[in-house]
Simulated scan of single mutants.
Amino acid sequence: MEGRSVAARKVMVVADPTHESAGALQFALSHAVVENDTLIIFHVGNHNAWTNPFGVFFRKPNANSGSGATTSTSLAAEGGAGRVVDFLDTMKQACMAAQPKMKVVVEKAELVDGKDKAAVILAQSTAHKIDLLIVGQRRSLSNAILGSRRGSLRGLDTADYLILNSKCTCVAVQKKGQKAGYLLSSKTLKNFWLLA
């Protein structure tokens, strides 16, 4: 296989200060991106929501360990001694520790009156010519049985709307415990179980 290079792709992960978003990023780093890809961490919200007052979702690399890659993608809530930490910067640092040669870009957009979060994400994924869109998804038992009635356009949650309307491949990710794996959904796969 030497001498053959894989074409670089653009992968976008929708980022929020939630465990679902952190799980989606962890999935992207462990299963979806390679070092020559460009990873775009994209957040939609208002300016006041860009920092995470509840702590950091990624454990910082341990100075005593030889490899920062093993601890950088571990999900943990680690408070910052009274300081507010920018979760997007923390996510970017985790990506750079896990894949040092990969290009990582952080982008932010604000919701404008009348615009839906999913519509903003779709517009940005089209503008950037994204090859793979990854979004974290929270699914309760009642949502799975009855369907979601909140969130995005036409009664779908944001992840479902993105899967149905994205021009690129879109994968919704649910992290199922630290070692249990991921539940993935896309246009072609519904509730596909991937072991960690």
Rank of each mutant, 00 (worst) to 15 (best):
96 M>W: 09
160 D>P: 03
124 Q>R: 14
108 K>Y: 02
27 F>M: 01
35 E>F: 03
187 K>T: 13
35 E>P: 10
104 V>Q: 01
122 L>F: 11
176 K>M: 14
18 T>Q: 08
169 T>E: 13
102 M>P: 07
42 F>Y: 13
183 L>P: 07
30 S>A: 09
49 A>S: 13
113 D>K: 12
90 T>A: 15
35 E>W: 02
186 S>V: 01
134 I>M: 06
127 A>C: 09
120 V>E: 05
141 L>Y: 08
154 R>T: 15
179 K>I: 08
179 K>T: 09
117 K>A: 14
144 A>H: 13
3 G>Y: 05
169 T>L: 15
178 Q>W: 04
11 V>L: 02
103 K>V: 09
106 V>G: 01
155 G>V: 02
111 L>N: 04
180 A>L: 09
40 I>F: 04
105 V>W: 00
184 L>K: 01
87 F>A: 06
119 A>F: 07
68 G>A: 09
73 T>L: 06
113 D>A: 13
132 L>A: 07
149 R>N: 04
75 L>R: 03
114 G>F: 04
117 K>D: 11
33 V>D: 03
98 A>W: 00
124 Q>K: 12
8 A>E: 02
59 R>T: 08
150 R>Y: 08
127 A>Q: 12
113 D>M: 15
121 I>D: 00
132 L>S: 02
65 S>G: 11
9 R>K: 05
195 L>V: 15
78 E>P: 00
174 Q>I: 14
34 V>M: 05
68 G>M: 11
195 L>A: 15
89 D>P: 00
99 Q>T: 14
105 V>C: 03
29 L>I: 08
101 K>S: 13
85 V>K: 01
51 T>A: 07
117 K>S: 13
2 E>F: 13
128 H>E: 11
139 R>N: 10
25 L>M: 05
158 T>P: 07
59 R>V: 05
177 G>R: 09
113 D>L: 15
175 K>R: 10
50 W>F: 15
73 T>D: 03
91 M>K: 02
74 S>G: 06
149 R>P: 00
103 K>Y: 04
21 S>K: 02
108 K>R: 10
37 D>E: 12
85 V>A: 06
161 Y>P: 00
165 N>G: 01
110 E>R: 03
21 S>C: 12
168 C>Q: 05
174 Q>L: 08
153 L>F: 03
22 A>W: 05
158 T>A: 02
30 S>P: 11
133 L>M: 14
196 A>L: 12
29 L>E: 01
81 A>E: 08
54 F>D: 10
186 S>P: 03
100 P>R: 12
128 H>I: 05
190 K>E: 12
170 C>T: 06
136 G>K: 03
133 L>E: 11
64 N>H: 13
92 K>T: 08
10 K>P: 02
81 A>F: 10
70 T>K: 08
26 Q>Y: 03
156 L>T: 07
1 M>R: 12
17 P>D: 14
116 D>S: 13
61 P>I: 03
149 R>W: 04
166 S>E: 00
133 L>T: 05
166 S>N: 00
86 D>G: 15
176 K>R: 14
190 K>V: 14
164 L>V: 10
44 V>M: 03
171 V>H: 05
173 V>C: 00
17 P>S: 12
186 S>C: 06
175 K>C: 06
80 G>I: 14
168 C>V: 11
76 A>P: 02
154 R>L: 07
127 A>E: 14
2 E>C: 05
53 P>W: 07
31 H>Y: 06
135 V>D: 01
176 K>P: 00
176 K>S: 05
175 K>W: 01
175 K>Y: 07
5 S>K: 06
